[in-house]
Every structure is written in structure tokens, then in C-alpha cells.
Design a protein around this nucleic acid. Sequence first.
RNA 1: GUGGGUGUAGUUCAGUGGUUAGAGCGCCAGAUUGUGGCUCUGGAAGUCGUGGGUUCAACUCCCAUCACCCACCCCA
Length: 430
Amino acid sequence: MAIQSPKGTKDMLPQDSATWQWIEQTMREEAALAGYQEIRTPVFEYTELFERGVGDTTDIVQKEMYTFLDKGERSITLKPEGTAGAVRAFVEGKLFAGALPVKVYYLNAPIFRYENPQSGRLREHHQFGMECFGAKEPTADTEVIASILHILHRLGLRDLGTHINSIGCPVCRPGYHQALKEYLHQHFDQLCPVCKDRFDKNPLRILDCKEEQCIRVTQNAPLTLDHLCEECDQHFKSLKELLTAQGIAFKVNPKIVRGLDYYTKTVFEITMQTSRGELALCGGGRYDGLIQEIGGPAMPGVGFGIGTERIIMELTNQGIPLPQVSVSDVFVAHLGEEALVPAFTLAQALRRGQIKADSDHGKRSLKAQFRFADKLGVKLMVIVGGDEMSRGVVKVKDMASGEETEVALDQAVPYIQAKLNENKEEARHG
RNA sequence: GUGGGUGUAGUUCAGUGGUUAGAGCGCCAGAUUGUGGCUCUGGAAGUCGUGGGUUCAACUCCCAUCACCCACCCCA
């Protein structure tokens, strides 16, 4: 049996590369417009980074990390999310000492979580993320939300849900936890077994449970929004105003909790509709305590991560046409073995002339070369045959019109350049 | 971790115990002796996931096992 890719991983095959590159290009451009620069951090980090950053009571840390000991007995973990690594690099690179805020993005960083794969869920997936370090104002929250929505809009996606919430800060959270636990305690018997377990460890997570019995209990549970301190309340109000002023439609969803412990104040999700309900495309929020937790100065931050595979899933769901790129614009066919090298040489010359050109490496029949070239989607076919070679010419055939022209071999490159430009012009005006 | 489904040609799939396991698409060739798409004709291509069992006979029934897909939980 042939070796397969590991469970939950997926190859990006050549037929998908144009789609990925198009998405990446859009992300780069939109991030640059907002003043974000690229950052790349290692695929693996010391496990402690995620235990401290993401939080050791979260599902991610407790059961979903790819953790192993390296040969030096150090505990290593493959990135289960993008923010902690970016924050670590920000602190280690002492970027906090320079001009603030520092705004960075990471492009399709591989993210690993040990889960059972299914539709829209992989063990390795890729995330684009934007992080703004050193700005506590809600304009920063608005900026990152607006950027990702612009990206999704430019890709052609519509009807996505933007959900926001505020989960408070270390000032207001203890009071909220107490209120929530008091409430849940009265209905403890009605909770699902998993949530009974969560009660002590992470009561906030119970709000996110989808078990019917728990939804019934949590319907009337106290909300973080009703227990915000003055500062958090103002921040959230201001965020809502800013979003509205930017023309961004959103819904306040007081049940959004997020699966990472570092969030403070703003949390948000951008969701898509699937046959099985809503699925998060993008998740993010504010993390005003994280930079300090990781050993940096007390400094606020806000950002998000978005899964590229899920973007592609949604592009497909919405039937949005994906970019098709012709592999080659010109194919140089040889006729007879003696023409093989001259055809190859001409293809090389075309490439030096900035033309995407290809030729046959084998001894295929002219017909087979035509069929192959047709599948590549070439615009022009060049035929190098014995008859033409003896007269120092080649034939150039326009694949769309079928029209054939004889061209002197030493004029072939400029002729083809001109011909392709002409076609391009026609396409633009037609 | 728990439950459901599916494994047959390169691929998508048909095939409910009985000759030599089929089809569409793809691939190769011919019709067109130097020309693609459309059409027609022909051809190559299979350890029927793997291991065991029942049977005169197994792709088909039974058991085990592996892989993949889907769902729950949680998330991107």
C-alpha cells in the first residue's frame, strides 16, 4: 500500500496553488494597507509558551497539542495557534522598545491540533493572522476586524456573520465568575457531564456548550456584559460605535467565550453557514495581559487568526469562481526526433524573453503534443518540423482562431511576444 | 475518546453466492500518412483495503483489522 499523508493533513496540489496565491496576495495587500508587516516564527515552540499563554485549563493545551521531548529532553510543541508565537517574538526581539504600536501579520502559518478530522477540521491547517501590539484603544480592535472583513469581501465572500462580545478584564472577571458559579450551582444537576466537570476548571466554557440541557440552563445565566467594570464597558460601547461608523454590520453575541484564556475585553468571531449550522472562519480578540504573561512589559494587544482552508471551503460553498492560471502560453512542438532539440532550444529562448513556454521532453506524436498543449491552455502553438527547419522558419498557430503563420526562426521570439501582447489587448477591450 | 458510513481500473462509481468483475471520465492509438477542442472506433489498465472463516463456489455472507469520510466535543 502506498504511503499516505498523515491523518488530518492535506497536500496543496498544483491545481490549488493559484487559489492559495490569490488569497495570500489579497491578505498581504490588505495587511500592508493598514500598516502591518510580515512576521514568521518557528513552527514549534517550548511547550511552556502555550501553557502560560493559551492557558493550561483550555482544551487546546489539555488534549489537542502535538507535544514531544526533543533529544535534549526539552518539551516542544507544534504551534496550536498563532498569537503566542508572535507575542514571544515581539518580546524576544524587544520590539516593544521601538515605535508603538507594532503591527504584524503572519501568512498561512501551519497550525497543529490533535483532533479527529472531519469536514472543515484538520490536524494541520493554515492561518493568516494580524496582531497589533501596544494599542489599548478600541480603534485597534476595529482596525483588525475591518481588515479581515475587507479581505473576505475582496475575495468575493458575502453573508458572513460578525459576532462580538466583551469578556471583561482582571478587574471585573472575579465578580463575574462568582455570579456565574452561584447561578450554575442552582442548576448543577441539569448540566451535561462535561459541563459538570467544567464548573470548577473553567465555568465560562459552559456558556459555549451546545448540549440542549446546558443551553436551557445558560439561557438565563448572568452575562459577562452585565458585569463589566467601567473601563471595559466604555471600551465595548466605543467599539460598537466605531464598527457602526465604519459601516460594519455586527451582532453582539454575549455567549461567545473563545477557547483561549488570554483574551480580555473584546472577543469576536466571523462565521459562515454550513449544513450543520454556523462554523467559525475567524476568531480573535484583545489580550491585554498576554505580553506581560510571556515576559514582556505590561502592554495591550489585539488580533485574530483565520483558517485559510475554511476560507476556501466557504468560497466553494458560495460558488465563487476560483482563479485559473494558464500553465504555459506557448507550446513548441517538434516534428520528428531531429526537431526535438531545436524545439527545446526555442522554448528556452522564449522563456528568456519572459514568455511562459513549454516543449515536449519525449518523442510524442505531433497530435499528442497538440492534445497536451490544449490541456495546458496554451494560446499559441509553435511547430518545428523538418520542412520548416530546412527553410529556417517555424509555424505559429493561434489556438483560438486556428490561423497559422510562418515566421523566420530568428524572429520567432519577438513575433510571439508581439502576438501575445496583441491578444492581451484584445482581451482587455473585448 | 464515542457513534455512523465507505473501501472494486488512474479516477468517480455499478456489481445481493454461480462463465472470463463492468460503465462514465481520463490515458494511449486509429479514423485525419504534418495539427488540438467535437464525433466515431479500438486498446492498455484490477492482489475487488488486508487477514482469517463459512461454502462445491465469495467482490457478494460472517469475524477481525487497517485506512478514509462524516458526526458528537471543541475549534480555524
